[in-house]
Amino acid sequence: METTLNKDNIFSLSATVDSMKGKSSLHRLFRKEIIDNRKLLMMELATAWGACILFGCLLGFYGRGGGFSELAAFYFIIELIACIFGSMIFSDMKNKKGRISTLMLPASAADKFFIRWLFTVPLMAVVGIIGYYLGDLSRLFIAWLSNQRVGSEAYHQVLNPFTLFFDYDTLYLALLGTATYFFMQSVYILGGIVWPKLSFLKTFALFYCLEIIFGIASLFFIRIWSEDHLFRISPKNETTILTFILIFLVILTLCFYWLTYRRFKNSEVIYRLF
């Protein structure tokens, strides 16, 4: 029996394969990720943007928007979506079949990890920013449709979240918000490689247990140090404390990326927690 690939297809496919052989491993992985997982990627885009648009429409419907609280709500939604998708970064490794095809693909662990990181972290951040603008525009559109008359001028404009970075009063807030976004996502990315199944829920449960313990311990020590006059939050040292927190979050985020990579590199065909 003859195969039904006609000559044009054979030559064009051969040419594609040959040209791709000359490209870098990252290039090939990037292309493979997009083609193999295009449905999943489209679904992620639709979910992220759909959630933002839906939320924007609700804000518009109820005549809200243009303020910090709405911006914070958008931030929370985008953060949640980033964490959910972050926890799915290694979802193809949840069973033996997926682990084999991932681990046996001829590319270095660093390249494979980097491509996943690229899609999950920077590209997801861009998707989140676009989602925010789509959501705020949807809010304005709904407000325009319903011909609302709300007094605030800000309500009738798209709020640019990047302005927070250019005002000294809000700079730390913006930086902390950004650092927290990436930190939280890195926690869920690490959770994604530690628990390939139900990783979001498991990471959520563990992280909040740890956060409660950490919060209680912090309050306890701050109180003791305050009583001993060793520590006091004042406008003078507030900036220093915020800077420390910022650096701490950045270092932790980088550590979590590194731990995720190490765990991925040492993955085996069978799942091991330790």
Binding site: L13, V17, R28, R31, I35, K97, L105, P106
Partner: peptide, 20 residues
């Protein structure tokens, strides 16, 4: 037991064959 992506054979070849 193995998994193949939900794509055409030609697409599979264009994405996976260049690694070999």
């Amino acid at each position: 037991e193995f998994e193949l992506p939900n794509i055409t054979l030609k697409e599979f070849l264009s994405t996976t064959a260049p690694f070999y």
